[in-house]
């Protein structure tokens, strides 16, 4: 765990990481990963990774469009910025 790695994951996470916080965060993450080291030593050869506690299959929904549900005005009510029924963001450049 070093500065470069922390900066990279902050970028992937789209979270600002002020320069003065980098040493503290780096040290805290390093501590957490030291805690995790012992787990990494557990023998797990041939063990099927467990993604989920339930041994169930994905249920399927019938292909029927809804008729009710919240209106657009309600759905857009929380938007920091909206106009003409659209969510607004700074110009997306392709």
């Amino acid at each position: 765990m070093d500065k470069l790695v922390v900066e990279r994951i902050a970028y992937l996470s789209r979270m600002k990481l002020p320069a003065q916080e980098i040493p503290v965060v780096t040290e805290q993450l390093a501590q957490i990963f030291r805690l995790v080291e012992a787990m990494r030593a557990v023998p797990t050869e041939g063990v099927e990774p467990m993604a989920h506690p339930l041994d169930l299959q994905q249920p399927l929904r019938p292909d029927e469009p809804r008729t009710g549900g919240p209106q657009r005005a309600d759905l857009l009510a929380n938007a920091p910025e909206a106009q003409d029924g659209l969510f607004l963001v700074p110009r997306v450049i392709e």
């Binding site: 549900g69 919240p70 657009r72 029924g85």
Partner: peptide, 17 residues
């Protein structure tokens, strides 16, 4: 989700949580 897929509707009217 159960939102309709029809093309060309008013923006964000075929949306849900």
């Amino acid at each position: 989700c159960a939102c309709p897929t029809a093309f060309g509707a008013e923006p964000n009217t075929h949306t849900c949580p």
